[in-house]
């Protein structure tokens, strides 16, 4: 574990807190550690209709106790799933907070709690290139998994936290593949090396670490560890192409049957399907006119295309049709986007 950064980060965290100070509504923090709580009851009474405590009521002894030191790591994922396309950078956002009560006291004494922040891989259907960053109030700053942070207890549970994010650059992969990451905060001792041992609530001597169970495997309640997870979802275009043919005129026998004779007109249908989530841009379809056939003039149809043209043979290049689409949108819900191209040839 690295410890060199921690003192710097303490200041940076406060800066982050200040930067976020106006956001959200106040949520009361637990009573400060070391605070003395005192209870005194008072009593008045009469005898024979005469007040026996005319000046001051009778006061009981003061029942006194001290507020114990509580450390409570809380990691929350702001983003459940984050979708993105190939080549884009996406972010899984987390908040890390100390909902304990060991914040800096009124005398300025600094009692901070050290958290080790670890990023753990969950199920990886694809592998984005990831880096880790925290917000210092001004900028996002890189850190490495396993680094030690000093995170004082929150004064306002709604606004006092450290913002952390996992940046992922998406590579090539199948549509809807997922990559899950866990952010794990472990409470460690002042030295920043040993996990703080959790003690029972009736322990009156030691610091008590209390936390909920988290998303990371093995993160149980009250184990000085808390975690949350978030998932990248890769979105990509998924194009497929198919082609069919049919005789539309001049065939032998019943029109539309499979007798292909010279002079017959054959219509080809090319079907383009985008079953991915993302729009496919600059799609170009080329199809060579088959040997021993001749393109039927003006027979090319291509719905929603940006250009569709027949290109005559030139030199060694055979005749062909070319259709371009500026874009083919991704599926809508579970319904894929389909584009159809039709053209006709006459058998020589």
């Amino acid at each position: 574990m690295k410890t060199a950064r921690r003192n710097i980060l303490y200041g940076l965290f406060l800066a982050a807190v200040l930067a976020l100070g106006s956001v959200g509504t106040a949520a009361a923090a637990p009573t400060r550690a070391g605070e003395t709580i005192s209870n005194t009851a008072t009593l008045t009474y009469e005898v024979g209709g005469v007040n026996q405590t005319p000046d001051d009521p009778i006061a009981s002894n003061a029942a006194v106790f001290v507020v114990d030191r509580l450390v409570k790591p809380v990691v929350t994922a702001d983003t459940g799933t984050v979708t993105g396309n190939n080549g884009t950078t996406q972010y899984l956002n987390f908040k890390v907070a100390n909902h304990g009560n060991d914040r800096v006291d009124t005398t300025g004494t600094e009692e901070t709690t050290k958290f080790v922040l670890t990023v753990a891989e969950g199920t990886l259907g694809f592998t984005p290139s990831v880096t880790y960053e925290y917000f210092n109030g001004t900028d996002w700053v890189a850190f490495t998994s396993g680094e030690v942070f000093s995170i004082p207890a929150a004064e306002n549970l709604a606004t006092d936290y450290l913002q952390v994010r996992i940046a992922g650059i998406f590579g090539v992969g199948a549509n809807d593949e997922r990559a899950t990451y866990h952010l794990v905060a472990t409470v460690v001792d002042e030295g920043g090396t040993n996990k703080l041992e959790t003690t029972t609530a009736s322990d009156t001597e030691n610091v008590i670490a209390i936390d909920e169970s988290g998303s990371y495997e093995g993160d149980d309640a009250a184990d000085s560890v808390h975690s949350a997870s978030s998932t990248f979802v890769l979105q990509s275009a998924s194009l497929s192409i198919s082609k069919t043919q049919i005789i539309t005129a001049g065939g032998y026998g019943t029109e539309g049957t499979s007798y292909y004779l010279p002079g017959a007109i054959v219509e080809y249908t090319i079907t383009l399907t985008n079953s991915g989530s993302t729009t496919a841009d600059s799609v170009e379809v080329n199809d060579v006119i088959p040997d021993y056939t001749t393109y039927v003039s003006d027979s090319l149809e291509a719905t929603a295309s940006s250009a569709a043209q027949f290109i005559a043979a030139a030199g060694t290049d055979p005749a062909k049709i070319r259709v371009t689409y500026a874009s083919i949108p991704g599926k809508t819900g579970e319904v894929s986007t389909v584009r159809t191209i039709k053209f006709k040839v006459e058998i020589d």
Binding site: N39, A41, T42, L43, T44, Y45, E46, V47, G48, G49, Q52, P57
Partner: peptide, 10 residues
């Protein structure tokens, strides 16, 4: 003597 109207405040 008995105490009457004993009031305890807390």
């Amino acid at each position: 003597k008995a105490a009457d109207d004993v009031a305890i405040h807390n």
